[in-house]
Amino acid sequence: MTREEIKARVLDILAGIAPEAETELLDPETDLREQLDIDSMDYLNFVIALDDEFNAGIPEKDYTKFTTIDSCVRQLETLGRS
């Protein structure tokens, strides 16, 4: 999967979590929790959806690596290569 494809899927997932958000306007380097006003339940649902979509097996201690769009894409790219 290309970087752009990964990003598009991440944005789709975010749109499911925060339906009112205009995901294309999000800053890729700013914390998603701040930008989208999502709480811990939303964030857990986001990680679950990433895990389902990319079969990523994300450990809880790595949640902090998935807090921005760019960092999500980087992590998922790395997982895809491993």
């Binding site: 811990s40 339940m41 857990l44 679950i48 895990d51 450990p59 809880e60 201690k61």
Partner: peptide
């Protein structure tokens, strides 16, 4: 909670709530 969650798949993890 951290120990418990490390043994659980993502979908079954608990929030401190």
């Amino acid at each position: 909670l951290e120990r418990e969650n490390s043994a659980r798949p993502v979908r079954e993890r608990l929030l401190h709530n």
